[in-house]
Structure formats: C-alpha cells, structure tokens
Design a protein around this nucleic acid. Structure first.
Lengths: 223, 223
DNA sequence: CGGTTAATCCAACGTCTGTCGGATAATGCG
DNA sequence: CGCATTATCCGACAGACGTTGGATTAACCG
C-alpha cells in the first residue's frame, strides 16, 4: 500500500515540538484513499496502515469515521478557498484599473483555480463524490459552490458594466465552466496521454471559451 | 425503502411467459441504489429488499456483486448508446442537406443527449462514479466516452467543412460540453429550485455556447 | 524523584458483509 | 401420474467492519 508512513513513533507522550504531527499524516493518507475509492470502500485499518499507525490511533486523533471524512473534506476545501479568495481579492483590486485589466484578472483567477486542482486532484475527487450524494448535494452547493459562483458572477458583472463583456453571466455558465475544469483534472489523472500538452490545450480552450461567450475584448490572443 | 417491489412471487418454476422478469426488477432496483450511493455503500440484502426478493435470489440471477454492478452499468449505457446512435444516424443523413440542416441536426442530437440524461439520471451517477476510479478511468474512456466524442467531432468537422462552423473542434471542447450536461443533471436532481426553469435555461445556454464557439450561422435564435 | 498527562498499540466486542449449500415448491414434459 | 428443471427462500459460514477498554510507554512538571 506504499504508505506515506510516519517513521513509526514509539508510544509515550510526544515532545512538545512534534505534537499534532500524527494527525496530519493520518489526514493526508485518509484524504488520498477517500479521494481514490470513496468513503465506504476505505477501511479504517487501511487508513491506519497507510499512515503507519494502528487503527486505535486513528480513532484517537480523528474520532469516528464520519468525522475523519469531514475533517479531510474541510481541510482540502479550506486550502482551496484560501487560494481562490486571494485571487479574488486581486481581481477586485484590478476592477478600478479599468475593464481590460479586470478581465485579465479574471483570466488569472481561472488559472489559479485550474492550477490548484491540477496540483491537488483529491479536491476534485472528494468534491464530485459528495456532489453525487442526493441529500447532501444542496448543503454542499450552499456551503462551497454558491459563494464561488457568486464571486465569479460578481466579477463578471463588474467587468460587463465596464463595457468589456457583452452580457451578465447566469449561474449555469459559471457552473459549466467549473465542471469543465473538474473533467480536465480527472482526465489528467488518468495514465497515458500527454499531460503537458493536455494542460496547455485546456488553458487555451478556457481562454477561447471566455472570449467566445463574452465577446471580443482585445484580450483574445496571448502566449 | 419504498421498494419497486415485485408482487412477491412464490417459489417454484415460473410460467414460461414470466421468465426473465425477476432479473429486470433486481437490475432496476440495484441500478437506482448504486447510482444513489455507490458500489460499496449498497448491500446485497438491501438490493434484495428493494426488489422484494431474498438475497439468494439476487445472487441466483446476477451472480456475484461485481457482476451485478457490471450488469447495471452495461444495461444503462446500452440504452444511452442506442438513443445516441439513432440521433447520430439522423444527423449523418442531414449532412447531405447542407451545412445549415446539418447544424440543426447537431443541435437536435445535443437535445437528445440532454433529454436522455434528464430522464435517466442514474446514467450520470453511474458514469461519474466509475469515472473517478483511477484505474478504470482509461478503460471507461476508451469503451464509452471516446466513441461518443469521436462521433460529435466527426459531425462538427463535417459541418465545418460545409462552411457553417468557424473551425474544427478539439476533444476538450466536446468533453467540456458533455460534462456541463452531467453537472446540469446532478443539479437538477437536487431538491429545491425550479426544475422547469433550469431545464429551459440550460438548453438556451447550450445553444448560446455552440453559437459562441462556432460562430454566427443564422441558427442563433430558436423557438 | 514521583505523579500526571498523552500517545500509541493490542485485543476483543458485536454487527454486518458477500457467498453458498440445501430444502421447498411449482411448472414443463413425457 | 412421475421425473427433471427451475425459482425461490432459509440458514449458516468466515471474514471484515467500526468502535472501545485497558495496558504500555514516554514526556512533562513540580
């Protein structure tokens, strides 16, 4: 099972410097497993083995299995949100510099999103798996997706008001954009193919799509 | 558990007329459960209960649990493929009638796709769940996705050659389009919201997207 | 030093899982 | 009718599951 393994710490109270260490290792191992195979297909003993600890240690640090899953989920999406909000802040600043700069900032924000998911594909896997659960879907949408969509829509509206876009964007456009990214990431994780080329092509596609949807803006080209 | 229940047939060899009946009921119940919660979260006893039969009866008709899952998967996608290939055949015929008619046929084919997934959301759920499995992804892509993508691309290229489209379509565009549909279906299955409006808006979005990507063709407006 | 705290593992629990052998009952066929 | 066939269910098995109590070990603190 490869094992991200801890160096197998002996029992006893840890030194103050290394506290909270095991929990991180467990969460990382669990996140990878949950992303790859889903909640029910992963056993706690398997998580423990991947982390190089005992089952009871996992429970000790993360409580129940459902709590462990929630912790993985929250951890991953906190990272995503942090990255996106930083990019959004930059985009907001660019709003004052005119619609052209604002649109470029929007493009940058899309890049940040794509980069993040490419670097951490577990995010996509965890997201899609929970997305499919019929009951939790609404809650998930409210809590994670809606703020992101609103943010992008707000930026698009602001850019549109500046005259660089043809029309304001409905929810469905942003959602489709996001899902195209998820699809790209899943396909990228598959063995075979030419990752570098695929990444390049996908970015070009996104650029082209945005320009196509929102009209010619003078930002059409750009190496 | 609601139960699509069979009327609880008594033991004994069935009449020749009603043979193969139970198997269909089991597959239907299993498909719904697998789609909603995934392979590992669904127990065979639960499938049996939903179908109104005993566990052993499920095994008797569908073999192992993995075989049951495969049967559900194959059944659902055989239906999808049948519908899509019929639409594709119509689109091919329209190619001879000129690029305008060909593009309209392409739009119709998209509609058929969306209609099918809306009517059978299990298709999307089963598809996405297996899509996420890292190892089976490539096989799945080869076996189910690639032919579909190739088909649409071929049609687009033919239409483009006729002068109605601006440029040929790379793989990534078609894939993004398909995923936008899946996202739409998942969102539609969620409680709350206004399904009728969402369906209307999404179709409008698809039209707009196609026109935006492939240039003004005179087919811009619709109803 | 001695006492407290905290992390780790071992072992066991009850439950649920997928699977299979065998009993039962009803039809089809001669 | 009598025999083979088939669908159905009951019961049981071995294994894996999530979870818990208790023992062990080591660091902190006075």
């Amino acid at each position: 099972m490869a094992a991200v393994t801890m160096p197998r710490r002996r029992p006893g109270r840890p030194r103050r410097s290394e506290t909270r260490d095991t929990r991180e290792v467990v969460l990382t191992a669990a996140t990878a497993l949950f992303a790859a195979r889903g909640f029910d297909a992963v056993g706690l003993r398997e998580v423990a083995a991947a982390a190089g600890v005992d089952v009871a240690t996992v429970s000790h640090h993360t409580g129940t299995k459902a709590q462990l899953y929630d912790a993985c989920f929250a951890r991953v999406f906190a990272a995503e949100r942090a990255v996106l909000e930083a990019a959004a802040a930059r985009a907001r600043d660019a709003l004052d510099a005119g619609p052209q700069q604002a649109l470029r900032a929007l493009h940058d924000m899309l890049d940040v999103f794509v980069d993040f998911l490419e670097a951490r594909p577990e995010t996509t896997a965890l997201w899609l798996r929970r997305w499919l659960e019929p009951n939790r879907h609404a809650e998930l949408d409210q809590r994670y997706a809606a703020p992101l969509y609103d943010l992008v829509e707000e930026l698009l509206a602001a850019v549109a008001a500046g005259g660089a876009l043809v029309e304001p964007t409905p929810h469905v456009t942003v959602r489709s954009l996001v899902w195209a990214v998820h699809a790209h990431v899943v396909a990228l994780a598959s063995p075979g193919g030419s990752p570098a080329r695929e990444r390049r092509e996908f970015r070009a596609f996104l650029r082209r799509l945005l320009v196509a949807l929102y009209g010619p803006t003078g930002l059409t080209s750009g190496p």
